[in-house]
Write a protein that binds this DNA or RNA. Structure first.
Lengths: 247, 247
DNA sequence: CGGGTCGATTGATCTGGGTCAAGGCATCCG
DNA sequence: CGGATGCCTTGACCCAGATCAATCGACCCG
């Protein structure tokens, strides 16, 4: 059972929205077949828990459609979001039996799951899966570190501007005709945004109102945001202006 | 060049303090030889920069002795530590050309470096290196998420107690004879602790003084800490009492 | 020795964001 | 229809931690 150095191999498959084929034709069929054999889909309604921290977790998964969050909770109820999973993002840890965080569907959600055992075996025999997973994990680690800077050092206003920027970047469904504008829906409630940012929901609400009053953003209803000038918003984030030139 | 499912393969070698041998004897020599060929050591004095964010970084490395930090800085000088590297920890990202963070030696430091190119090639041909790296990266991600909870939701007192606990756990050079006590040296200045915790150095100093006044900790000089009763300190962290029962 | 530097401590004061509380506005449902 | 519920907004007030500033001790070095 030899492998032929395939160049691409994502963890999703079938109707998942991300590419998944190995380049090498001889491997491809093999792997596809194996992945197909151990995968299944699960759906969740908005607000439903996917799994609770400490629960036995016998699968790993990637998001197909919708949004899920990872949160940690202290005994007294203080909550901090520690992960935001968008389509193609991966959850679960090979080699760990129980979930370390609460995973919740914040919108209707479809996940593509792989039973843990066979997935781990497959990973052992298919080296580039581990490599692809490593890449994704390193990206997540970078995101986590950016997030740490936000939590530790940014003001409430900068936090909001940063979050809006992040969502705009990933979600820029409609670029405005006018130069440099975007519009998008907020996928999070004010409270979820607060849990993301380490703030209270009142502060989130106030800061959004301020940005609105100043014309940095325009709201249509409570959830739909229009950013007339993205650069203007970017100035408020406190980040280096040159944008993320990683890699 | 086939591999024989070795069970252990760390990235360090030679006189590095961590295990590094592959279990399978046939692989072992091979890999050791290859790792030896591309590795070299670098030493840094306390306070010296290892690399600046944005610099070209043509190696990956692991810490042999000493402590290094990863920090991010905003234009106006606000700083947030995003990584604390102790012996055996890994820095650098295969597949990225430039450093994403400032890396600084906070104590005298020896690193075991591998030139990036050959290391990546080796990783391609030696699957369990990627697997080992994945494991380590997932551990770091978990640590980062714990850290996010600390930054976003803990009080100054809880932050200090948490940091002391973390250092005590990793550094418990001397357990006290009396039940449940430990002593250790702080490897960080007050300012570095502040950058770790998202506080100012004054707040760090005040909180330490308070814990001292209350007898939770005892100081010998400014850097040496004695924790007479670790449980007492743990109660102050805000964490679940059951301790980290991961994996 | 005296002056400089670096880290740490402590005090006095200020303020950003938390807390508490009162509505507002949809949507749902009996 | 009217009450309930969920999400959001806004106001009034307060406090944990930031800011500004003075001092101390240890160490180094000319």
């Amino acid at each position: 059972m030899s492998h032929h150095d395939p160049k691409i191999a994502d963890l999703n498959c079938g109707d998942c929205p991300i590419r998944h084929r190995a380049v090498c034709a001889r491997c491809e069929t093999d792997e596809l077949h194996q992945l197909e054999a151990i995968k299944y889909y699960r759906s969740f309604q908005a607000g439903q828990p996917v799994i609770w921290s400490g629960d036995r977790m016998e699968f790993v998964a990637s998001v197909v459609t919708g949004i899920a969050t990872l949160t940690q909770t202290m005994e007294d109820g203080r909550r901090q979001m520690v992960g935001l999973l968008l389509p193609s993002d991966f959850v679960g840890r090979p080699g760990r039996a129980t979930a370390a965080y609460d995973v919740t569907a914040t919108t209707d959600l479809v996940m593509c799951c792989f039973r843990k055992k066979p997935f781990e075996e497959l990973m052992g025999s298919t080296p580039h899966i581990a490599q692809r997973l490593l890449e994704m994990t390193l990206d997540e680690l970078d995101a986590a570190r950016e997030w740490m800077l936000l939590l530790g050092r940014k003001t409430a206003r900068e936090k909001i501007a940063s979050l809006l920027t992040i969502i705009a970047r990933r979600n820029a469904s409609l670029k405005l005709a006018s130069k440099g504008g975007v519009r998008f829906d907020l996928p999070l409630t004010r409270e979820e945004m607060a849990d993301y940012l380490g703030l209270t929901l009142e502060t989130v609400s106030r800061q959004i109102s301020t940005l609105k009053r100043e014309g940095v953003i325009v709201l249509e209803g409570k959830r739909h945001v229009i950013v007339p000038n993205l650069d203007r918003l970017l100035e408020e984030t406190g980040d280096d202006s040159d944008g993320g030139m990683l890699n």
